[in-house]
Amino acid sequence: MSAISGRGATVNQGSARFALPAREADGDWLDARDSLDGAAPPLRTSVTPERARTIISRNQSPDIGFDRSINPYRGCEHGCIYCFARPTHAFHDLSPGLDFETRLFAKPEAATLLRRELAAPGYVCKPIAFGTNTDPYQPIERDHRLTRACLELLAETGHPVTITTKSDRVLRDLDLLHAMARQELVSVCLSITSLDPRTARTLEPRAPHPARRLAAVRRLAEAGVPVQVSIAPIVPQITDHEIEALVAAAAAAGARGIGFIPVRLPHEVAPLFRAWLDAHYPDRAAKVMAVIQAMRGGRDNDPGFHSRMRGQGPWAALIAQRVTVAARRHGLGRERIMLRTDRFRPPLLPGTQMSLF
């Protein structure tokens, strides 16, 4: 398979788990008109409104540091080839491949749904995580502003929130983040996988340049917003040589802590990743997969709790040791930033009378 300009996946294969049919990687009639010279048509991005019934997702995973999250969007235009959320598109009869990064869904009533759920009797406040499945600051947030609308409500109610993103677009909400940080209600994590623009462009083709992400770390830190950097994922034989440089750059930008995850390849992500390797790194594809399998118990993926986030064996241990040593050298912590929950006040619903006390 050959690379497709501006996209991560090289194929649009269906899902064997759900008998999903294969899809042709083509665009609309405008694409056909624009490619009369015989070149492959560019893939356009479409956004469809999704009428969700709820907005807070719950999980009970013992190796994840939160029990609730919000995803204003489904699918992600950043196109990260390794994204563990790709298989979720198969649930909607769409391909985890190119469909995931070109056929997106937005939840226009996200803030309205959030207000209703936060106001529900018996709601117990705990930090809500953004960026757990798809990036809350992917390019379509520029126009839809759904993440912004949810953050405004969380700020209004004094509700804590954590944000993980690959985009410096998070700075557009710096006014909210600064105010929430003063009340210990927010932390931000910037994901940076490589300092090499060429590597980043193939791994995550529509995510911002690594330098822009580091600049965002610096601005957040200067504004008093607790910010960390996540090297997620670390791809052996492709980005692992950058571990020490990434930790040093994060520290220089003002990050408070560092985290990492070795690359994970669940379900349909594994064949998509293999096809991507063949297109971009044919000289080392076999070596990359051999190391990944060495960290995953001889398989492409290890779904076990705890081990899925750290891997196992000598390769995984070496990566963990390198991150730990580099973090210690630069004074970066690994502890979780604690946020306050005692400031939360349930929001009023439309038509609700305010309390006299």
Rank of each mutant, 00 (worst) to 15 (best):
A294M: 06
H92Y: 13
R328G: 13
A251Q: 04
D240H: 12
A200V: 04
L153Q: 02
R322D: 13
R33A: 12
E152I: 04
G331W: 11
R322A: 12
L118T: 04
A294K: 07
I234T: 15
R33S: 01
T341H: 02
Q138V: 05
L339K: 00
F305A: 13
G65K: 01
R33P: 00
D63I: 02
W315K: 12
D240W: 11
E24T: 13
T239M: 11
M309S: 09
H209L: 08
S230L: 13
D31K: 06
E109G: 01
A223K: 06
M295F: 09
G8C: 08
N301Y: 15
E141D: 11
N71M: 05
T165D: 10
A179R: 14
L118H: 05
T48Q: 13
F66M: 01
P41K: 02
R310I: 10
E204H: 03
R7N: 12
I81C: 10
A327M: 12
D63A: 02
V47C: 09
E156C: 06
D26I: 13
F66L: 03
A255E: 04
P271T: 07
Y137N: 09
G14M: 10
H330D: 04
T134Q: 08
A317W: 02
Y82M: 03
A181S: 15
I261T: 14
A221H: 07
I292L: 11
R264I: 00
K107R: 15
A248C: 08
H306V: 14
A207R: 02
L177W: 01
G122C: 04
G257P: 00
F273A: 11
P72Q: 07
A253Q: 06
P271S: 06
E156N: 06
G257C: 10
N301M: 10
G27K: 00
P208M: 05
R44F: 05
L220G: 07
E204P: 07
M295E: 05
P160L: 08
A250T: 06
A248L: 10
L151K: 06
R172C: 05
F273I: 08
P236Y: 00
H330P: 04
L214T: 05
P41H: 00
P121H: 04
D28L: 03
C125S: 12
A200Q: 14
T165V: 05
P233T: 03
R299A: 14
A270E: 14
E117K: 12
A275H: 01
S46M: 09
G158Q: 08
L20I: 05
N59E: 10
E156L: 11
Y82Q: 02
W315H: 15
D168I: 00
R310F: 12
L332P: 07
L190A: 02
R182H: 04
L146V: 03
R219N: 09
